[in-house]
Design a protein around this nucleic acid. Structure first.
Lengths: 193, 193, 193, 193
DNA sequence: CATGAATGAGCCTTCATTCAT
DNA sequence: AATGAATGAAGGCTCATTCAT
C-alpha cells in the first residue's frame, strides 16, 4: 500500500485540489496553495494538509505522466532494436515534457519532495541509461555523451522548444530538435533510422 | 546618438548601479531595484530614474557581452570556411550564455525593454542566419533546421548545461552538447571539424 | 469519587496523553493539543474529549507534583519547630517550581480549569498560611509579610532563578534566593536555621 | 549622533508608532506590527521600516525608562551612604519594573535587538554592581549574593508583585517584597534602615 | 468513544512603485 | 536630479476548534 487510504470525503478533496492544480499548471499559472484553495473552494488548511508545499502538489500533478513514461520505458527495454528503442523512449519523453507543463520543473529539479517522485525519476533515468548502453553496444554512439547527459539534454530540448515557439508548434519543434541531436548522438555511424 | 549625454555625477551613478547589478547577477541574486539602490548607496528613485524596470537594468548589464558576440559574429562572416565560421560563432555564443548569468534571460525573452537590446539581438540573429545559410550552401546541413532554430537551440543547450551540472563543469558540458548537436546539424556530411 | 471511572482503553489513552504532555513540558515545548494528539498517535478529538483545553492538560500534568507538595505540607504541620517547618516547606516548594516545568504556569494562574487543581492549590496555600502563622507566633517574623504573599514570593523566586541562569544551576540559585528571602522574613530575630 | 536624523514626516510617523506601541503595552496587548500599523494609520511597511521586529519596537518603548534609571543610578553612585544608595537604586528599579509594562520583558531578555538597549542594560548592571560592592565594603552584606543576582532578583520581585495582585497594589507590594529581600541581603548586620 | 479532515481567521513578511521633500 | 519614506497588496503559514464519519 503506497498511498494511505483516504476517507471518502478527503479523497474527493484531494482530487479537487489536484484537478485545480492541473488546470493552473496547464494555464501556466504559478501554483500558489492559497490560490488553489480558493479555486477548489476549500480552506487553506485543507490544501496544506494534503500538500505541505507547492512542490509536493506539483509533483503529484506530474506523477501520472511520469508513471506513463516509466511504463513505456519498461516496454522499450523489450525492444530488440536498440536504436529504435532509445529513439522511441526519448521521443516519448520529449513529447511529454513539451505537452505537460508540470514536467519540466519536476524533471529539472535537483531534489524532490515526494519519495514517489524520486523513485519514478530514478526509474526513468535507469531505463534511459540501459537503453543508451544497449545502443552503444549495438552500434556506434558518441562516446562523450553518457547516461548522465540524457536528463539535461531532454530538459534542454524541451526548453528550447518553448523558446520563441508557438504552443501549437512546440511538439513538432521539439521533435525536430531531438532528431538533430540523435543524429549527432549516433554520430558518423551508419544510421538505421 | 542613442544615449543622451549624462551629467558627470549622473554618469557616475549609472556606472555604480550597473556595477552593483553585475555583481548581483554574478552571484545569482535576483535583481531587485530596492536592493540595488541600497548596495549602490543611492536612493531608489535614482535607480528607477536610470532603469525603469529590473529588465532594463538586466539588459544593460548584458549589453557589453552581446556587443562582443556581435563583434565576433561580424568577423566570423569574413571567414572563408563556412563550417568553421558557424561552429566558432555558436561556440562563442554558448560559452557566453553559460558564463554570463545575465544572458540567458535576455536571450530567451520574447520581448525586450531597451531598443539597444532589440537591435543587438537582431544583429546576432542575422549573423547566425547568414552563417547557417553559407554553411548550407557550402556543404550538407540538415534541411529541417533553419535559422529560426538557432536561438532556441542555443538557449536550450545553455539550459541543459545548467541542469544537474556543477558550475565548474558547465562550460565543458555545454561544449559537449553543442558538438553533439552540430554533428547532428551537419548530418551525414563528412565533418571537417 | 471525583474522577469518573474510565473504560480500560479510554484510561490507556488518558495515560498516553498525559505522558506525552509531560514529555513536551519537560522539553519546554508549548502544549498544543494537535501536537499532543499526533505524538500520542491519537485523534485530536480524543485528546479534546479528555482535556477540553491545553490548560486542563497542563494542570493534569502538574497535579502529581502538587499532590506531593501537599503531602509534604501535611507532615510539616506536625513538625514541632515552626521555623524549620516553614523553611522546609518553602524549600520543597521552590525546588518543585524550578524542577518541574509544569508548575510555574499553574501556580501563578489566577484561575484554574480543573476543580482538583483549585483544591490542591487551596490546600497548599492553607498549609503555607498555617506554617507562617506558627512561625510568627513562635518567633519574630516580619509583620508586613502575610500568607497572601507566600505564593507570589515563591513564584517570584522561581522566576528569578530562571532568568539568566543555566538550567543546571537553577535549583541551587533558587535555594540561595530563598535563603536570602527567609533571612529577610525572619528579620532581626536570631536565626535558628 | 546616536540616532540617525529623520526627515520631519518620518520622525512624526516614528513618534506615532512608538506612541501607539506604548499604549498597547500599557494595556497589556501583545505587540503586533500589523496591529500597530493599523492603529497608527500607517502602512505595515512603514512600521517594518522603522522597527524590523516587535522586539525592536518594545525596546524602543522601554528605552526612556531605562535611561531614567541609568541617570538615577549615576546619581546614586555619588551618595556617601552605601546602603541608602543601593536601597534607593533598587527601589527605583523595582518601581519602574512594576509601573512600566515594557520593562519586564526587556530586562529579562537574555539578548537584545537594539545596541542602545544592550548599552543601557550594561550600564544599569554595572551601576548595580558598584553599589553592591560599596555596600559590601561598608557594612555586612550576604556573601552569597553577587552582582549577577541583582537583575534576576529584581525581575523576580517584579514578577511576584504581578502575581495575584491588583494593579493598584502592585507598587506597594513590590516595595514590601524588596524590603524583605534587602533585609535578607543586609543580613544579620545591624540595619540602619 | 474515537477519529482526523476541514476550517479559516490571523499573523508575519516582502517588495514594486510612488511621491513629497 | 536625487532622495528615501511610505504604501499596501500579496503571499506564506499556523493552529485552535469543530464535526461528519
Amino acid at each position: 500500500m503506497t498511498t494511505a487510504p483516504l476517507r471518502k470525503d478527503a479523497a474527493r478533496n484531494w482530487e479537487r485540489i489536484v484537478a485545480v492544480a492541473r488546470d493552473l499548471v496547464d494555464h501556466g499559472t504559478p501554483l500558489q496553495l492559497n490560490d488553489v484553495a480558493r479555486r477548489a473552494q476549500l480552506g487553506v488548511g485543507t490544501v496544506y494538509r494534503h500538500f505541505p508545499t507547492a512542490e509536493a502538489l506539483l509533483e503529484t500533478v506530474a506523477a501520472p505522466c511520469l508513471e506513463a513514461l516509466a511504463a513505456h520505458g519498461e516496454q522499450a527495454l523489450a525492444d530488440e532494436d536498440p536504436r529504435r528503442a532509445l529513439t522511441g523512449f526519448l521521443t516519448r519523453t520529449i513529447e511529454a515534457q513539451v505537452t505537460d507543463a508540470s514536467l519540466p520543473a519536476v524533471t529539472a529539479a535537483p531534489t524532490d519532495t515526494l519519495p514517489r517522485t524520486t523513485e519514478l525519476k530514478r526509474t526513468l533515468w535507469s531505463v534511459g541509461a540501459q537503453l543508451l548502453e544497449r545502443a552503444r553496444d549495438a552500434g556506434a554512439v558518441r562516446a562523450d555523451l553518457t547516461s548522465d547527459d540524457l536528463v539535461p539534454l531532454m530538459c534542454g530540448i524541451a526548453y528550447a522548444a518553448n523558446v520563441h515557439s508557438s504552443p501549437a508548434a512546440r511538439t513538432e519543434t521539439a521533435r525536430r530538435y531531438l532528431i538533430a541531436l540523435l543524429e549527432g548522438l549516433y554520430g558518423a555511424a551508419p544510421a538505421s533510422r
